[in-house]
Amino acid sequence: MNSRNHYLQAKVIIPFFMQIALIIYVVSALQLSSPLVDGMLSESSFPVIIFLVATPAALKLLFDGLKDVKKEIAEGKEVVVKKKSIKPVLTVVIMAVFIALFELLGFSILAPLYIFFFMMVYDDKPQFIVKKIIFALLIAVVVYVMYAIAFDIRFPEIWR
């Protein structure tokens, strides 16, 4: 019986991290100044208010989540591990690589590759490769025309 998995569900994790974030937020605000300076509001008063409003909400969600988990454990329910698709992760990876290399390699090289791999991930299985390459080039050209020519926005390019 692995009870750790029970506690690693989103309904527990999200409020937990939100609470952590709120604490970091309010501490870093209070480091700037006290919320009241000579009876006047300062730059940290609003963050403190947000902290005070959101903390009960985050704690309530956290405790609700924990209560659910306890009930699940008591009932001996196993966490239903749904077969999760890897696709959202792949999408994130493609975007992250695109962003990381964007300034280095520039639009013309990256954009068609980005679209190509994006379509590969989005499709059910790797198929119609040539068609995808053509579409990738076409979309890149259309987007380039839209941004760079119609709206005069210069993207990084390897030769710049």
């Binding site: 975007m95 994006f118 989005y122 579409f135 259309v142 987007v143």
Partner: peptide, 11 residues
């Protein structure tokens, strides 16, 4: 759908 969403991803 592939064309649509990949365009959105780039735009």
């Amino acid at each position: 759908r592939l064309v649509l969403y990949s365009s959105i991803a780039l735009i």
